[in-house]
């Protein structure tokens, strides 16, 4: 944790230093630091996901649902990342488009689950 915060603070100082002369380099540096921080924490996420998968197996939940949910989280992460990078570069419109694409893809992914839920409800209803 302290390492991440320290990296963030140092990176901010460096970005401020570079930004005056070369804004392009500052932008790339910011992207780089963002990725590095994400990569440091993604190891932990893997652990959590393993536990989740184990629990789902024990509860005999359909493997397909878990997979879909994980995919949705992944898409959300990628879309968020791309949107933030483009917004940092001052392209708010493109960021909005990326977010839109992410939302639509998530919807597409979720459709099988929704269908299953609706079918279940219909079956329950007399």
């Amino acid at each position: 944790m302290i390492q991440v915060v320290g990296l963030g603070v140092v990176a901010t100082i460096l970005i401020l230093l570079v930004k005056e002369q070369k804004p392009m380099f500052a932008f790339l540096l910011a992207t780089f630091v963002g990725i590095v921080i994400f990569l440091t924490v993604i190891g932990k996420i893997t652990e959590i996901l393993k536990v989740l998968a184990h629990l789902a197996n024990q509860a005999k939940v359909n493997q397909f649902f878990l997979e879909t949910i994980l995919k949705i989280i992944g898409i959300a992460y990628i879309a968020e990342f791309g949107a933030q990078v483009t917004r940092d570069a001052g392209q708010g419109t493109i960021a909005a488009k990326i977010e839109l694409a992410g939302k639509i893809l998530i919807m597409v992914m979720a459709i099988p689950i929704i269908i299953t839920i609706i079918e279940t409800i219909i079956n329950i209803l007399p």
Partner: peptide
């Protein structure tokens, strides 16, 4: 634990040096 933090300083260094060379 942090991924490869050296690269952060490397990028910042390249940026500063290139800016100086550019100015000169």
């Amino acid at each position: 634990m942090p991924y490869n933090v050296d690269a952060v300083f490397q990028i910042a260094g390249i940026g500063i040096i290139v800016a100086m060379i550019h100015t000169i």
